[in-house]
Design a protein around this nucleic acid. Structure first.
Lengths: 239, 239
DNA sequence: GAGTGGTCTAGACCACGCA
DNA sequence: GCGTGGTCTAGACCACTCT
């Protein structure tokens, strides 16, 4: 292993090295990594050290380990990952799979608030996606998604956009969102909200702002959702 | 180690045994556990196996390990734990330490919805706590807390109640809340909300329902919070 | 210096998936 | 039967804390 100025345990160095290689796209999603033995030999450390690094990566859901088969880069495809950041459920706790209606995407110059959030310089382009999401055929959720155009070239031309954008980000652009920071507020429906969600004036709405953060710490997506919580509630387990 | 009908790894058995002993109160909060060597000798397993169990417990914040000193039962006292389940922050992201005003606690018969949530039989007693919480001297949050009286005998006589109830639960009643399940909705302020939070009619409120779950899986607390999100927002990081 | 947890190694055996 | 990850052990050495 390479020397490091400040001390870091061996398994940590292995961990960091693997994260870097994920970010660089050395192994695509759903692809098998070398076996523990192979990695250990390649890096000149013991299998136990590699194992400790891999266990930590599995804990953070960056990889998936299957006994008897091998170790795979986690894919944002499975049911489990599908709902990883989607916290809206039916009021009884049942999962809801929303469909998409009235989706639009366009490229334009970033506004000040957007540039600040992404740390972009003035004049930078962004892609804005607006969509209405339905559950059981009824509109319940409005989403406005803004991403830096430089990270997602041509995203606005992807039609139709898939239901699960994060999978697209990962597969087509190598942007692996692993963390989200969300802020929730209560708000009252504005005229536009009422029209699109078919709500009476003055209805309460759950206003959710999310920043999506990629593997390397880059802020990659800003998402504002406005939700009619008569039909979907935000559910989260903390432990 | 004792035999188990269905197979569980050794380190898992050690883990479960330790959890049981925490629940039974064998070691009080902030008390040192036996050393890894001592535990290993006592249980007749290797130190590595004990270590794996302890590492898992540390990951779940049930214990704290300090190199050179020992392993301690986690205390719900430190700044870090104080905010473990308190997700409300100022809109700019700054932590807010709310104070309590107008706190009341009374014992009464549980209502149907409460009994159902706790799995209690009809006629069981509960303790209900109502309080208004202030930030910078202004009321921003209403809390209604309901707990089974059987688990918290005499709780209604604790005056004044501390700001951090979970610490009290742990220290006085051995109830260690380690998980919470929350549901968030947007709502409009009712008359009572407006009066207590000094809000104009029709203001939006964030309505939060929380179930607090103890170490052994028991549902121990039901908490309904209604929050003026002009002053505090709900912030959560998912990863 | 003694005792603690933290890191690292080497090797054994088990459970699983697949050809 | 082979290769994979999963468990378990035993022992060495390091880093930290306290006396």
């Amino acid at each position: 292993m390479s020397e490091s100025p400040q001390y870091r345990p061996l398994y940590r160095q292995v961990y960091d090295m693997l994260v870097k290689r994920f970010a660089a796209g050395d192994w695509g999603p759903a692809q098998a990594l070398p076996s523990e033995q192979a990695l250990a030999a390649e890096l000149g450390v013991s299998q136990g050290t590699v194992r400790k690094a891999l266990d930590a990566l599995a804990m953070e859901k960056l990889i998936e380990r299957r006994q008897g088969k091998g170790t795979y880069v986690a894919e944002h495809t499975q049911e489990s990952s599908l709902f990883r950041f989607f916290r809206l459920t039916r009021p009884d706790g049942e999962r809801a799979v929303p469909t998409t209606a009235e989706s639009s995407a366009k490229r334009r110059e970033g506004r000040a608030a957007e540039l600040a959030r992404f740390g972009l310089r003035e004049g930078a382009q962004v892609v804005e996606i607006n969509r209405t999401r339905l559950v059981d055929g009824a509109p319940v959720l409005l989403e406005r998604i803004v991403v830096p155009s430089a990270l997602f070239p041509g995203l606005e031309k992807h039609t139709p956009l898939p239901n699960t954008l994060y999978q697209l980000y990962q597969r087509e652009y190598g942007q692996n969102i692993v963390t989200t920071e969300e802020q929730l507020r209560a708000d009252v429906a504005r005229k536009d909200d009422c029209r699109r969600l078919k709500l009476p004036p003055g209805s309460p709405l759950l206003h959710i702002e999310r920043i999506g953060i990629a593997l390397d710490g880059t802020r990659v997506e800003w998402r504002v959702s406005r939700c009619d919580t008569a039909k979907l509630v935000y559910a989260v387990t903390l432990s």
